[in-house]
Design a binder for these strands. Structure first.
Length: 803
RNA sequence: GCCGCUGUGGUGGAAUAGGUAGACACAAGGGACUUAAAAUCCCUCGGGAGCAAUCCUGUGCCGGUUCAAGUCCGGCCAGCGGUACCA
């Protein structure tokens, strides 16, 4: 009989659906293991190859963990709020909820087609009011704890989406989604104070097992830097406070620069007022992108008539305004040390300002001496002769004593802009009352359900489509009972995904986001795998929400995820990133149809290093199909024999089987799925040289089942083994049996390979050298030479050094 | 610019901790079976020399450490990702 993958896969998927062998059980006595994959955004295009890679990998882990006796939670859901759905709805005049329903149905079908062992009863959908009730509830808690606030801020405005974007959604000055220009605009927006958690988000990375590149990227994004704030008095009697990480170079500060938006500019009487005003106006007109684009040439204007006083030299220094100083970082003002900062140096050259060397070792006449940590302080009064570190300590102490400044830690991280002027998102549960201000909706009124609207488009003024629904927006103030308006902004699609993993623990709870018992049992997530592109967005946002929920006593741990790994992209066959415009998108449907889900799963794991990008190759898929054909042909006919325990493997196959069990097991844990599959292929190749007995076949099918679950179940049944192969214990290996009695020893002379010999395992050195010397080939090589040294690596290698 | 990662056959990729480079596949070539094709099975497959056993050479480039370097160190080059006037 031929390997009929189609009927086999349909059969087992039906059985799994009916009998639910992969259901997670709350409060079970087995040890729990919570494996999480990033739930998909259900786009109209269906799954592409980017989805099955992480899903298959974690499915393999989930299946193996179950076989090892864990109560595994491996859930899936849909992150369904978002712009593409809304745009599709606008274009086709279909309600976004209907679009979402269709898309999730398609995704569900495709995910089931691939044979994933998800617990489908726990499926969540962020657009379900029963779900977003709790997203809104968390928002109310954030508001209650002063972590949500509304402020007039310059926002990134996408000219095409007509929508406010988070900084994270602006890429190279254009909208991440549609590629249109992004400009700056003042708008009243909801923000979340993620900056309050900057320190904890940074420091607690030390407590979790995230792959290093994720930690590095998060740390860079949070951007912690330690320095000092220093006060500079001015001739007007005002004080300009600056932030610097180089307080040691204070004696070299020969001028100051403040941002064009600095508040003191409004207060001062400036001699060249018009010139300053013109510069401010020009800077305000520029978008963030334009401001950073002009990196090469720095511009600025001196604020004439007012001077600052360097607190250590007491000399008067000029003040400039320039847009290379950002209003949003530090204090919006800097002390300029042209001798030791590249930007200050360029600016000083251009405007003919003095450059003073305060750390020796460079040539400040030629260029700024920046990497000067090893230098010695010069021209620096009280800190002359000290090294940089000591100088920092001493000057900071002095500044603090004089009341002129103090040590200060700054972060690049900014508050999270949380408003969107869009329809397809969670309504923000706030009422705006003329008398009481922003009033939270009482919990009893949640969920605040999205109203039906006539038009989904953002209004011309940039307000949410909800703003046009006056019937809905007009309400009464929960506090004073007077007439009030509902907030019409909605939440960004990062909201629902910031806590979804908690809901999986108890997805049908209608009195809490999840019961405390369920959270105590399942959280934290043991292993979370996802894309690098979410490192500074979703991953950071959800850590923030989780820390907040921990602080208010909702969740039992301060970090949501114990372990985070990250997979590489699957590229198109042309080696380019898959995209519709390139026309190189590959979806799993065709491969599954032509070769079956098991082959598709195998190939996507065999393709290469899980953590790196890898190009798809349709022709290489066949290799995996061939492998399954070979397995089928090997095991289709019932193999006789009563013994089925691993202790009953033949002497012939003993070593290779114990080795394979060891290798496949450890490879799954360390993301090396490609070599795990290679090991299985080798084992099958060995079985073609000498046929396996019943015990050996059993081990093979058990190990194969996480990778290719359908064929494994079918062959298991054909062989007459009991139950589901996916519910068998994972095979155990015996370390002693992973070695042969004999080992091949490489023999080198002067470090060059000259041959190999067979020697008994753990052979003692003398016997080994003796054997080497007797080997005819080696003998010829060392004739008439004297062995002056021998190096032996046990069971591996002998190296003879001769003269 | 800064931070991180990567560079190995025609291709995807292997190579615990420095210890036989190229596992496992794909593609290609040759052969068996077949009327033929598909499928299957067997052989070859980094480069060079040789009938051959064998020898030389080879992991982006240059140098170093070591008995021994794809692996460690220093300096380059190229590609990918992140970030960007962050003081």
């Amino acid at each position: 009989m031929k390997y009929d993958f189609k009927s086999i896969e349909t059969k087992w998927q039906g059985r799994w659906e009916a009998e639910k062998p992969f259901a997670a059980i709350n409060g079970d006595t087995r040890p729990k293991y919570y494996i999480l994959v990033e739930f998909p955004y259900p786009s109209g295009d269906g799954l592409h190859m980017g989805h099955p890679r992480p899903y298959t990998a974690m499915d393999i882990v989930a299946r193996k963990k179950r076989m090892q006796g864990y109560n595994v939670l491996f859930p899936i859901g849909f992150d369904a709020f978002g712009l593409p759905t809304e745009n599709y709805a606008i274009q086709n005049k279909i309600h976004p909820a209907v679009v979402t329903k269709n898309n999730t149905a398609k995704f569900t079908e495709q995910l089931k087609m691939l044979g994933y062992s998800f617990d489908w009863d726990r499926c969540v959908d962020t657009t379900d009011p029963n779900y977003y009730k709790w997203t809104q509830w968390i928002f109310l808690k954030l508001f209650e704890h002063d972590l949500a606030y509304k402020a007039l801020i310059p926002v990134n405005w996408c000219t095409s989406c007509k929508c406010v974007l988070a900084n994270e959604e602006v890429v190279d000055g254009v909208c991440e989604r549609c590629g249109a220009d992004v400009v700056r605009r003042e708008k009243s927006q909801w923000l979340l104070r993620i900056t309050k958690y900057a320190e904890a988000l940074n420091d607690d990375l030390d407590t979790v097992d995230f792959v290093e590149r994720v930690k590095v990227q998060q740390r860079n994004w949070i951007g912690r830097s330690v320095g000092a704030e220093v006060d500079f008095k001015t001739t007007t009697g005002d004080v300009i406070r600056v932030f610097t990480t180089r307080q040691d170079t204070l004696y070299g500060a020969t001028y100051m620069v403040i941002s064009p938006e600095h508040s003191l500019l409004n207060k001062w009487t400036i001699e060249n007022e018009q010139e300053v005003k013109d510069y401010q106006a020009a800077a305000a007109k520029k978008s963030d992108f334009e401001r950073t684009e002009l990196v090469k040439e720095k511009t600025g204007v001196e604020v004439k008539g007012i001077r600052a006083i360097n607190p250590v030299t007491n000399s008067e220094i000029p003040i400039y305004i320039s847009d290379y100083v950002l209003a949003t970082y530090g204090t919006g003002a800097i002390m300029a040390v042209p001798g030791h900062d590249t930007r200050d140096w360029e600016f000083a050259k251009k405007y003919n300002l003095p450059i003073i060397e305060v750390v020796s070792g460079g040539d400040v006449a030629k260029e700024a001496y920046v990497d000067c940590d090893t230098g010695t302080m010069v021209n620096s009064g009280m800190i002359d002769g000290l090294n940089v570190d000591d100088a920092k300590v001493k000057i900071t102490k002095w500044l603090t004593e004089q009341g002129l400044g103090e040590e200060k830690v700054n972060f690049k991280l900014r508050d999270w802009v949380f408003s969107r002027q869009k329809y397809w998102g969670e309504p923000i549960p706030i009422v705006i009352c003329g008398k009481c201000g922003y009033v939270p909706l009482p919990e009893s009124q949640l969920p605040l359900v999205l109203p039906e609207v006539e038009k989904y488009e953002t209004t011309e003024t940039g307000e949410s489509p909800l703003a046009a629904m006056t019937q809905w927006t007009t309400t009464t103030c929960p506090k004073c009972g007077g007439e009030a308006q509902r907030e019409t902004d909605t939440m960004p699609n990062w909201a629902g995904s910031s806590w979804y993993f908690l809901r999986y623990a108890d997805p049908h709870n209608d009195t809490a986001l999840a019961s405390r018992d369920a959270l105590n049992y399942w959280t934290p997530v043991d292993w979370y795998n996802g894309g690098m592109e979410h490192t500074t967005l979703h991953l950071l946002y959800s850590r923030f929400w989780h820390k907040f929920l921990y602080n208010i006593g909702i969740v039992p741990t301060s970090e949501p995820y114990m372990k985070r790994t990250s997979h590489g992209f699957i590229l198109g066959e042309d080696g380019q990133k898959m995209s519709k415009s390139r026309g190189n998108v590959i979806n799993p449907d065709n491969t599954v149809r032509e070769y079956g889900a098991d082959t598709a799963r195998l190939y996507i794991m065999f393709i290469g290093d899980f953590e790196k990008t890898a190009p798809w190759s349709q022709s290489a898929v066949k290799g995996c199909k061939k492998f399954l054909d070979r397995v089928w042909n090997l095991a289709e006919i019932k193999v006789d024999g009563r013994s089925t325990s691993i202790s009953d493997v033949s002497a012939e196959h003993e070593t290779v089987i114990h080795r394979a069990v060891k290798k496949v097991g450890s490879d799954i844990e360390s993301l090396k799925y490609n070599t795990a599959i290679a090991t299985l292929m080798s084992l099958v190749n060995d079985f073609y040289v000498a046929a396996p007995n019943r015990a050996e076949l059993k081990v093979l099918l058990t190990m194969l089942s996480p990778f290719a679950p359908h064929i494994a179940e079918e062959l298991w049944e054909l062989q007459g083994f009991e139950g589901y192969v996916s519910q068998q214990p994972w095979p155990e290996y015996d370390e002693a049996k992973t070695h042969d009695e004999n080992v091949t020893i490489a023999v080198q002379i002067m470090g060059k390979l000259r041959g190999t010999i067979e020697a008994p395992l753990d052979c003692d050195d003398e016997t080994l050298i003796d054997m080497v010397k007797k080997d005819s080939k080696i003998k010829a090589n060392i004739e008439s030479k004297e062995i002056i040294r021998t190096i032996i690596v046990k069971n591996k290698l002998v190296n003879l050094i001769v003269k």
